[in-house]
Simulated assay, not measured.
Amino acid sequence: MEREIDTQTSPETAGPAHGNPAALARWLLAVAAVIVVMVIVGGITRLTESGLSITEWKPVTGAIPPLNEAQWQAEFDAYKQIGEYQQVSGPAGMTLADYKFIYFWEWFHRLLGRFIGLIYALPLAWYWVRGAIPAGYKPRLLALLALGALQGTFGWYMVRSGLSAEMTDVSHFWLSIHLLTALFTLAGLIWTALDLRRLAQIPGARPARFTGLALIVSLILFIQLLLGAWVAGLNAGLASDSWPLMQGRIIPEFDQSKGLFWAATHDPYLLHFLHRWWAWIAVAALIVLARRVRAFDRRASIAIHSAFGTQIILGIATVWTGVALWVAVAHQGVGALLVAATAWGAHLIGRKA
């Protein structure tokens, strides 16, 4: 029998259902859908090199963009002080109109983050006051709120890592933390929504357990997502426009002068290689999960297969097209959907009535 990791920490959740779990489930799934959109917009922001266009973090007043030419010029002048402008966009001849384009994507990305905070925090307060939250779920819902706050904080640390005369981009480590926190939050929202939906259907149903198989698949997928974030942060997708070979060989030449560990975390050629081939290990793990899930809900099995199949095709297409914007954005968006499908499948095999 498969060993299971019990995430049950409160005996309250074993009691009879109360509150309005069905409504909470619909709300959490709606927030999860907006986070998928957020991940897509974040991909556009990254691929258009827009992430450093706003050099300050103003959580409240920053929601209002420049309203006149003087304000636009002041923002542009602040952008001119950082390395990205001085070494990349400035020498390329960036105009104020060009700057307005990249400003829009970073501003919209931050605005969407604020919007997610509102559509989570305000309904949470409403359901809390109305007594609609089932016993045992308040700590989990608060934890998801805290993850959202961390996501915004990590986003600013990511931006700040690139705001110097020496840097021309953000730290790929901070980028990975920012992205993976978003995906972890997405998975948490879906898992909690599924628990609540099941509670609405079966009063007294216990939350799903996180099984050993779910842990293994999640760790393998986590490594693939981490590698993908580092590839994005280092522009390593441009290391090769051919597949399956790189530089006419399976294993490309890469910088080993600082050791293999440094190369595996910094060298774009090695990271590109690792990301494209670890993907097949992830596929094997996901196939195992999908086959196990099929006995519970065939739709979830189809969702997992469809997500990783589309993701593989888009990954190869991203390489072949030289990281064409919309192909690469689709690759990141389907990655978020793959996380959602995996969370669904893991939840199914962990259910206990």
Rank of each mutant, 00 (worst) to 15 (best):
R3E: 14
T211N: 15
M94Q: 15
L270P: 08
L141Y: 03
A70F: 12
I133M: 03
W57M: 08
I216R: 13
A205S: 08
L325V: 00
E56L: 08
F261R: 14
E69R: 10
D195N: 11
D195Y: 02
W277R: 08
G333L: 03
L96H: 10
E84H: 15
A23E: 15
A132M: 04
L112Y: 11
T185W: 13
T13D: 07
Y99Q: 00
I313S: 05
A132K: 09
R276Q: 03
T192L: 11
P91D: 02
L124Y: 05
D241G: 12
Y120S: 05
S301C: 12
F222C: 04
I190N: 00
G322F: 05
I202A: 07
A282L: 06
I190W: 04
E49D: 13
A182S: 13
R209G: 03
H305I: 14
L260T: 10
Y157T: 08
A97H: 08
H331R: 02
L348D: 01
Q311W: 07
V41H: 11
V39Y: 06
S53V: 01
M158Y: 08
Q71A: 15
A187K: 05
G233F: 00
T45Q: 10
D267G: 06
V293Q: 01
R351Q: 15
R198M: 11
L186I: 03
L227Q: 06
G335L: 03
I5P: 05
R198P: 07
A341Q: 00
D169W: 14
L271Y: 05
Q87E: 05
M94S: 11
Q71G: 12
A239P: 08
Y99N: 00
S161C: 02
A63S: 12
F273E: 04
A229H: 02
G228P: 01
V36H: 10
N20G: 09
H305K: 09
V288Q: 05
L227F: 13
G335W: 03
A317R: 04
A341S: 10
P252D: 04
M38T: 07
K258G: 10
A317V: 06
Q224E: 11
L144F: 04
Y85M: 03
V327D: 04
V319W: 00
A187T: 02
L28T: 00
G152K: 09
I349V: 15
Q87A: 07
I251H: 08
V31C: 09
L325Q: 00
W72I: 03
V39Q: 11
S257I: 10
F115N: 02
A22D: 13
E69L: 12
A135W: 05
L337Q: 07
T181N: 15
R298Q: 14
M94G: 12
W262M: 06
G90A: 07
L29W: 11
S161I: 09
E69P: 09
I44Q: 09
V31K: 09
V34E: 10
W72K: 02
A125S: 09
A23R: 15
W230N: 07
V37Q: 03
F173L: 14
P11D: 14
L96G: 05
E166R: 09
M158L: 09
T153A: 14
P207L: 04
A232N: 05
S240E: 12
G15I: 12
A239T: 08
R160M: 10
V329Q: 00
A70E: 14
I82S: 07
E106I: 06
G228S: 01
L260K: 05
N20D: 15
L325A: 02
T321Q: 03
H109E: 07
L245K: 14
V60N: 08
W156Y: 11
L213I: 13
